[in-house]
Design a protein around this nucleic acid. Structure first.
Lengths: 361, 361
DNA sequence: TTGTATGCGTTATCAA
DNA sequence: TTGATAACGCATACAA
């Protein structure tokens, strides 16, 4: 029942199998030289390893091979529902490649980001994936990574220069999708809650909205357009959506739909509308952006523009894994920037405008 | 702009400062012997280290000191909203102690759990924290950990024996809290959606419900009590809540409140009620359990029994950190089991029964 | 008060 | 086809 388990080293396996540590290493790692090892030898070594319960020591291995089998995953705020599916995608892809993720959560704080970066470097992660949406990170910080031969990729964010790959949604297409949907439903008086200036997503989404509006001759009433302030607190989207919707209602300007910057903002808007006695979607439609997990569960379920979050996590991993391989083989390798296609998910928070007709039918 | 950065080792610092690697090690780690080092020496060494950008190599350090500064965090399913706040709590506490979390997500799969356990052992995590709610894990697996001098703690789950600490809510108290609330609001016909048998939480919560019912002479109509099946898929709680509520409605038995096993189940119930044209909370109250992050954002916001999830994550870390320390100092140390106090959070999904009076006022 | 020497477990190079 | 040996970067026992 008790009794400590002593660590089983390669030497132990060598001894037990009657071969040298070198041979054991070659066999167990299936190294190139393994081609020349007699099958019988391989078998004896493998049997001995299994019998002893041998487990390679990742640290010792690193010291020789410079491979930690570790990837840093830096998340700006795990509390943001946006992050969970992305993390799942990252974790899953890393698992397939037998990498282990070292998890770092910046809590939206620059100092914390920097401290974690330091720790990740001490642990010699072979690559870094940054899930972020804000701009506070010193560009130089990430650029330095490439000097250390650490490939990096960002999700939901881009850094200038040619040292970091990135994966994002096509925000402009997404903005367009959202407005197009409302327009098809017959909405013409549409309130828009734009994202904070600080976020890289805000601009393109708004641009997509404007472009579509122009293309169909829809006039966006400036007094129905508001913009979220630059805030980093969790749920600030929800609060902002709530507050600005209240404000819009107070202006007594009529609108039949709200196009919210993201899902949380949309939830805030719905809360404000409901509180004011306005039914969603009967009296007012609401569209979000992201398709965060709770969007399917909320009442009413949220119509939104879906980001393929899990796939984005996957892709980022594939990018850095390619980068690692290239580095190992001393191949040339260049970063890439990806824009994923968003998708409209129609649920219960939008409806054809009253008195109008649903043009989608 | 370009040019690879060569790794700076302790030897480099030694050379630059004019002292030996040993002295450098002592100073930089602030080891016991540092007491005897001249302040001037310390300063010169520290300056040199900073100037060169010296960063200790965690792997090499492990090989000597057996300390990886790493803790394994095994989560049964990051997709479950229950996990996010717990993870936040764990991460935060580890950060305070300068440990780095290695993240593993079992996806509710036994084989994946085992594979990850293997990987964590290869990386020589100093401790393991398991966030789980199911029983499929081989007890032996975790018991073996203590033989390897790896302290472990579970959250939301307990393993028999005396080798693993645990942190849970007091489920019985929580069940009581939920029913008590509904009872105070005047509800007497209360439907209960019990948790799956497989989950360790289900029994105690139901027990707490029964005990309170007995204590106030409330009769729980058996035909209003249903039990979720043993399923592990994500959102199975939501689906179950939806389906069983529909089923209850079909039975035409009257009830004025639903006491759901957890928040997701509650959301499912709300969806079903809403779909049937029954307004929450006006015509039917709904209580959840957990206080998952979305509970505050949903419409209506959910009245629920709060688990202090973040604090639970924190506590688990403190337990294993203590275990690590004890191991280092060869002190005796024994595991502990903790039951955290749940808290009722009253939001908008519950209301005094129609025609009755709110006894809380 | 500081320096020298050794070994942690592994892999890569060379030799046999 | 396999074995001996060195080295990765660090921390410690011991020497000075």
């Amino acid at each position: 029942m008790s009794g400590k388990v002593k660590m089983v080293t390669m030497r132990d396996v060598a001894q037990a199998s009657g071969f040298s540590p070198a041979t054991v290493s070659i066999v167990l790692n299936n190294a190139p030289l393994a081609r020349y090892i007699a099958p019988a030898t391989k078998k004896r070594i493998e049997d001995a390893a299994k019998k002893l319960g041998y487990r390679p020591n990742a640290m010792a291995r690193f010291l020789r091979s410079r491979r930690s089998q570790t990837v840093g995953v830096m998340i700006f705020d795990i509390t943001d529902p946006f992050c969970t599916p992305v993390l799942r995608g990252i974790e899953n892809a890393l698992y397939q490649s037998s990498y282990v993720p070292i998890f770092a959560d910046a809590h939206n704080q620059r100092t914390r980001f920097e401290r974690y970066l330091e720790m990740l470097l001490e642990h010699h992660v072979e690559a870094l994936i940054v899930v972020a949406n804000w701009l506070f990170v010193d560009i130089q910080l990430l650029a330095d990574l490439s000097k250390r031969n650490i490939t990096a990729a960002t999700i939901g964010w881009e850094v200038p220069g040619d040292s970091v790959s990135s994966v994002m949604v096509d925000n402009e297409a997404g903005g367009r999708l959202a407005l197009e949907h409302l327009h098809h439903l017959g909405h013409r008086k549409i309130a828009v809650i734009r994202g904070p200036k600080m976020l890289i997503d805000s601009g393109p989404r708004w641009k997509g909205i404007q472009k579509f509006a122009n293309s169909v001759g829809l006039e966006m009433d400036p007094s129905l357009v508001v913009q979220l302030p630059d805030e980093l607190e969790a749920n600030s989207g929800f609060d902002g959506g709530y507050r600005f919707t209240e404000e819009l209602l107070e202006r007594k300007k009529k609108f039949t739909a709200v196009l919210a910057f993201d899902d949380l903002t949309a939830f805030g808007a719905i809360r404000a509308l409901t509180k004011a006695g306005i039914k969603v979607p009967e009296q007012c439609s609401v569209v979000g952006f992201d398709d965060v997990p709770l969007s399917a569960l909320s009442a009413p379920s949220l119509t939104t523009v879906r980001q393929p979050l899990e796939a984005m996590g996957n892709l980022a991993v594939n990018l850095v894994v390619e980068g690692i391989k290239a580095g190992l083989e001393k191949r040339d390798w260049s970063i890439s920037r990806h824009k994923m296609t968003p998708e409209l998910v129609i649920r219960d928070s939008t409806k054809a405008v009253e008195g109008g007709k649903d043009l989608t039918k």
